[in-house]
Design a protein around this nucleic acid. Structure first.
Length: 475
RNA sequence: GGCCUGUUGGUGAAAUGGUUUAACACGUCGCCCUCUCAAGGCGAUAUUUACGGGUUCGAACCCCGUACAGGUCACCA
């Protein structure tokens, strides 16, 4: 049987790194086994719909080099892939369950349930539906249905015994049946609940491996009971540990840069993000850390997924990202960084060559695209603010002479290129009789306002003769 | 509160009863290179695997208990 996995998000228009990692794992299990990866949209909560969310998911996965074999925008033989377009199907299956005695109509009102809930809190017991409507006779049900009374369909849970299943990551999971509620399968608005739609769709779409967050670990027996009721074969379960923020809590929108799109917009490379994420909660059987998608697909083994939650650490992501930036060819690198320059600085009178040169001298300085903005500031300002170390350094009396000599060299330069600039520096060294730090630092500080930065000749070249003279002469 | 799950350093983690005096990577610190920063190179960084018992010749690995953390108990997904 062909392995099929699915990514089944609700269309919220937002994807944090934990969701993405689940999608990646799902994709990897499918592709490792030469199988298929399906996208299904779980929009049975009509109040939560966000427009454009489906395209957003497609865009995100495409950036990550995850190919969707079947989904809403590339329909296969199991369509439709949007749950709201499949409602009739769920109803049909729910009714079949009712006929076979595995489910029942429930006409209980909101008020009655509310009372039950109050009573439960009073006695400090967890609320659980009492199965009142299970006792309704066929005639009563027919009458209520004919009267158009509102109803839901509930799953009939066994009262005794235990349910056990084997999870690929967590092993044997056992739950007492008595804690299982007669959960709602079809809501009074006719929509299925997630719990029901999920099972029906996974079966109908031929999903062989269900991969999801471990918050479903103790809920899975409910699903297995549904599979049993239908006499369907349950899938292989692979529950994955959670991804936590630095504060130890589950990732959420609030948790800073946890959103994939935010990272992408800050100039993180999807390849790096994927590489980082695959190593969050999973490790290969050797020490390899840098993977291409093909390599991960080949190596991925769900048995090596960890059981304990892992913390999202942007520092390590940055290391991966700077690694991937260094591997970029010049053209791709410029494309990464250019939008940030264009957005923040006036490049109108700068040549393509100049911009390229500027960007390239920072290629192994930055760990994500957006960082270039700060790095490059000194090329676009008229005022340089020296920090205290630089101020201190400039107090040395020999510096005035060094600067004057160098300034004269620059003034007399005819050609403006790196070689001539380096010559000027060298001549200054001889004439002013200073070397090393005492030679470079004064010039560097005068010219850039900082004690550190890329190669001095590059900096000077890019600043241009006029600016350099102004900076050397001023004050 | 009941139930389910987890707990190796600041972080990702390896090691599933014996070459472990706990690998590797990130981070941090130091040194080298260098005008400087970054990159790169080198080195340091867990008297010990949440804690307490037990089993064993031997335990991070097996068992029991405690603590802590997370999840779950909806006409949300």
């Amino acid at each position: 049987m062909k392995v099929r996995t699915r990514f089944a998000p609700s269309p919220t228009g937002y994807m944090h790194i934990g969701n993405l990692r689940t999608a990646i794992f799902e994709y990897l299990v499918a592709k490792h086994n030469d199988g298929q990866f399906i996208l299904r949209i779980e929009d049975t909560d009509q109040t939560r719909k966000v427009s454009g969310a489906i395209d957003f998911i497609y865009d995100t996965l495409k950036l990550c080099n995850i190919k969707i074999d079947e989904g809403p925008n590339n329909v296969g033989k199991c369509g439709p892939y949007i749950q709201s377009e499949r409602i009739n199907l769920y109803k049909e299956y729910a009714k079949k369950l009712v006929e076979d005695g595995h489910a029942y109509y429930c006409f209980c009102t909101e008020e009655r349930l509310e009372k039950l809930r109050e009573k439960a809190t009073l006695y400090k017991r967890p609320f659980m539906y009492d199965g009142y409507c299970k006792k309704l006779s066929k005639e009563e049900i027919q009458k209520k249905l004919a009267n158009n009374e509102k109803y839901v369909i509930r799953q009939k849970m066994p009262k005794l015994g235990k349910s056990t299943y084997i999870d690929k990551v967590y092993g044997k999971i056992t739950v007492e049946n008595s804690v299982l509620e007669d959960q709602i399968l079809i809501k009074s608005d006719g929509y299925p609940t997630y719990n029901f739609a999920n099972v029906v769709d996974d079966h109908l779409m031929g999903i062989t491996h269900v991969i999801r967050g471990n918050e479903y670990l103790s809920q899975t027996p409910k699903y297995n009971l549904l599979y049993e009721a239908f006499s369907w074969e349950a899938p292989t379960y692979i529950h994955v540990p959670m991804v936590l923020g630095t504060d130890g809590n589950k990732l959420s929108k609030r948790n800073g840069d946890a959103s994939f799109m935010d990272l992408y917009k800050d100039g993180y490379l999807p390849e790096a993000i994927v590489n980082y994420l695959v190593l969050l909660g999973w490790s290969p059987n050797d020490n390899q850390e840098i993977f291409s998608m093909e390599e991960i697909i080949e190596k991925f083994d769900p048995a090596r997924i960890s059981k304990s939650p892992s913390t999202y650490d942007i520092k390590k992501l940055q290391w991966f990202n700077s690694h991937y930036i260094k591997k970029l060819n010049d053209e791709d690198y410029i494309n990464l960084v250019l939008p940030f320059l264009e957005e923040n600085y006036d490049l109108k009178d700068k040549s393509k060559e100049w911009i390229k040169h500027l960007a390239l001298i920072y290629k192994d300085h930055i760990s994500y695209g957006k960082q270039i903005i700060d790095e490059v500031k000194l090329f676009f300002t008229d005022t340089l603010n020296l920090d205290s170390d630089a101020e201190e350094f400039m107090k040395d009396p020999s510096i005035t002479n060094t600067i004057n000599v160098f300034k004269e060299k620059i003034e007399n330069m005819e050609k403006w290129d790196k070689e001539s600039i380096n010559n000027a520096i060298n001549e200054t060294k001889n004439e002013a009789n200073v070397k090393g730090k005492m030679l470079y630092m004064p010039i560097r500080i005068k010219v850039s306002g900082q004690m550190h930065g890329p190669e001095l000749a590059d900096t000077i070249f890019l600043l241009g003769k006029d600016t350099i003279l102004k900076r050397l002469g001023g004050k």
